[in-house]
Design a protein around this nucleic acid. Structure first.
Lengths: 123, 123
DNA sequence: TATATCGGTATACTTTAGGTAAGTAGTAAC
DNA sequence: GTTACTACTTACCTAAAGTATACCGATATA
C-alpha cells in the first residue's frame, strides 16, 4: 500500500507559501554575516566608520564599507559626511531601518539564550 | 585640527559588543538562503520531505536534505521515519526549535511590510 | 513490463561571500 | 619630508554556498 499523501488544505498551503515569500524578501536584504550585526550596532545610536570597525568584531574595512553601501541603497541606513579634517562620516538608522527593531531584538534575545544553552551542555 | 574622536563610554561599548556577539551566535545557526525558510515552513506543523520541497520555492532535494540535517544536529528539528511503503519521513520543530517563533514572526512581519513598501515605490 | 513514488545521494559545476593586502586623497602634526 | 589620521577603494584569491542532473532501492500501480 502506498503511503497516503496527506494533502495540505489549499488555503493553509497558500498561506504558508505567502509567508515564506515574505521571509525571503526580508532575508534578501539582511542576508550574510554582517548586515544584521551592523544594524544591531546602529540601534545603539549614530556611529562613525572606525567606531563600527572596532565594535563589530572581525569585520574588515572592505566588508563594512560594502555592507553599509547596500544598507544605504535599501534606505535602512543614512550616511552623513561632516566637514571636519580629516573628514568624519556618521552612519545612523533611518526611520525605516528602525522598523527592524523587533527582528534585531528577537535575534539578540534568542542568541543570548542559545549561548547559555551551549555553555550548559559543554559543562 | 583633527576631528576629536568621541570615545564611547566603556559600559555602553561592552554592552553593545555583547549583544552583537549574541546576534552572531544566532546567525551562525540560521545563516544561508534556506534555513529560516525551512523553519518558517515547519511553524505550520509537521511536514514530509516532498511536501517541503514543494512549499519552499526553488529549493533542491540536495539543499533541503543538507539543511535539515544541520538543523537536526542543532536540535531545532526532529526527524521521524515511518515504516510505510514507500517510506515517509516527517520533520517537525523541537521545543527548542519553537523558541525561534519570535524571530521567524518578526522577520515575516517585516517582510510583509517591506514588500508593500517596494510595490508602492514602483507604482 | 514499464512507470511512478518517497526520500534521499553522488557528482560535477557555477556563483557568491568573504578575507588579505595594498593603495588612495586630503590634511595636519612632528 | 615623513608620518599619521579618516574613510575608504582596488585587485586578487579562496572557501563556502548553491545549482543541475542523474541515479538509488523498495514497492506499488497501470
Amino acid at each position: 500500500m502506498a503511503a497516503t499523501s496527506k494533502l495540505v488544505h489549499p488555503k493553509v498551503f497558500s498561506e504558508c507559501s505567502k509567508q515564506l515569500l515574505a521571509i525571503n524578501d526580508a532575508l534578501d536584504i539582511l542576508r550574510g554575516k554582517w548586515k544584521i550585526q551592523i544594524i544591531g550596532s546602529l540601534t545603539f545610536g549614530k556611529k562613525r566608520f572606525t567606531e563600527m570597525q572596532r565594535e563589530v568584531r572581525g569585520i574588515t574595512a572592505r566588508m563594512l564599507s560594502k555592507e553599509l553601501k547596500e544598507l544605504e541603497i535599501n534606505e535602512l541606513v543614512l550616511r552623513t559626511v561632516h566637514n571636519t579634517t580629516p573628514v568624519t562620516v556618521e552612519y545612523e538608522l533611518t526611520d525605516y531601518g528602525k522598523t527592524l527593531d523587533k527582528v534585531i531584538e528577537g535575534l539578540r534575545d534568542w542568541g543570548v539564550k542559545h549561548r547559555k544553552r551551549i555553555i550548559k551542555k559543554q559543562s
